[in-house]
């Protein structure tokens, strides 16, 4: 591997890391900040991807599909929070695990009924459907770079929302002491509904803009679910900064692992997680 290819692999690793952050961002919010264990995170990712596929083949444009699909997923998130999740905040985590595991099965079945069991491809928007030549035989897809940009924007936005705004303060306060926040006259129920819906919409949004890269297929949610939890756990529960750092670490470790030690590439992420947890049991940026 000469220097030019080393740089390209570095770019691959960072780009993959940003992608991981995007996919895990919804979980960071719902699990990391609100403390709800949401095993159905991957299902919302899948719903987003299938919506992107069906709406873009209907409208002929991925952008239009995303604009149409986001309100739908926000409504879905609010509905689920009102109907189901609201009743479990005070309960043991096990109840949330049971509920969200059940939701995985329900969403898979619904997906099969509505959209069928086939694999589908989603076209990259024409404007971004180009490649930048890097060497004489390798080019970089513009769409991947564009997604990286979106990921950075999202990360900055999330960080700002949680750390710098009044709403973010209420969310953080609510997560650590719900009753106290309520007795201060803040409508914590509404805030939870909104934040939960935002988390679901983020998961679905990740599925939508990732659809042209990953294609759309049954069980695609279960593939991202585990890595999302790894991101949140390595980064430290409750930290957007930590999730970003963890995503980049994993991205780089996987990329170079596949190239340098292909025999054990599948283990590297989990070894990394084990090492981080031995060193800092609360995660990189966790609240000890």
């Amino acid at each position: 591997m000469d220097f030019a290819f080393f740089l390209i692999q570095l770019l691959n690793g960072l780009q993959y890391g940003l992608l991981l952050f995007l996919v895990a961002s919804g979980l960071t919010l719902v699990f990391g900040i609100m403390g709800i264990i949401n095993l159905a995170h991957g299902s919302f990712y899948m719903v987003g991807a299938y919506l992107a596929w069906s709406l873009s083949s209907l409208t002929g444009s991925l952008t239009a599909a995303i604009l149409l699909a986001i309100p739908l997923t926000v409504i879905l998130g609010m509905g689920l929070e009102r109907l189901l999740f609201r009743h479990l905040y005070q309960r043991d985590h096990l109840y949330q695990v049971l509920l969200t595991y059940g939701l995985i099965l329900v969403f898979e079945e619904l997906r099969s009924l509505i959209w069928g069991d086939d694999v589908h491809g989603v076209a990259v928007p024409a404007l971004l459907n180009a490649s930048i030549p890097l060497t004489d035989n390798l080019s970089y897809p513009v769409y991947r770079l564009a997604i990286s940009g979106v990921c950075l924007l999202l990360a900055a936005g999330l960080y700002f929302l949680i750390q710098k705004t009044r709403l973010g303060m209420m969310i953080r306060a609510g997560a650590s002491n719900r009753e106290m926040v309520q007795s201060l006259g803040i409508d914590i129920k509404l805030i939870y509904t909104l934040v939960f819906a935002l988390g679901i919409a983020l998961a679905a949004f990740a599925g939508m803009i990732n659809a042209p890269l990953s294609s759309v297929f049954p069980n695609m949610g279960s593939q991202v679910l585990i890595i999302c939890f790894v991101v949140v756990v390595i980064g430290g529960i409750g930290s957007v900064k930590g999730a970003m750092a963890a995503s980049l670490m994993i991205g780089l470790a996987e990329t170079f692992g596949q190239v340098l030690v292909p025999e054990v590439a599948g283990m590297i992420v989990y070894v990394l997680m084990a090492v981080v947890l031995v060193w800092r049991p609360e995660g990189l940026f966790g609240r000890g």
Binding site: Q9, E254, V259, P262, A265
Partner: peptide, 20 residues
């Protein structure tokens, strides 16, 4: 021989390797 853990689909690193 290039291997990817089953069933991952992030091929970018290995495609770069092929080019090199």
């Amino acid at each position: 021989e290039l291997y990817l853990p089953f069933p991952q689909v992030e091929f970018q690193a290995l495609l770069t390797e092929i080019a090199s």
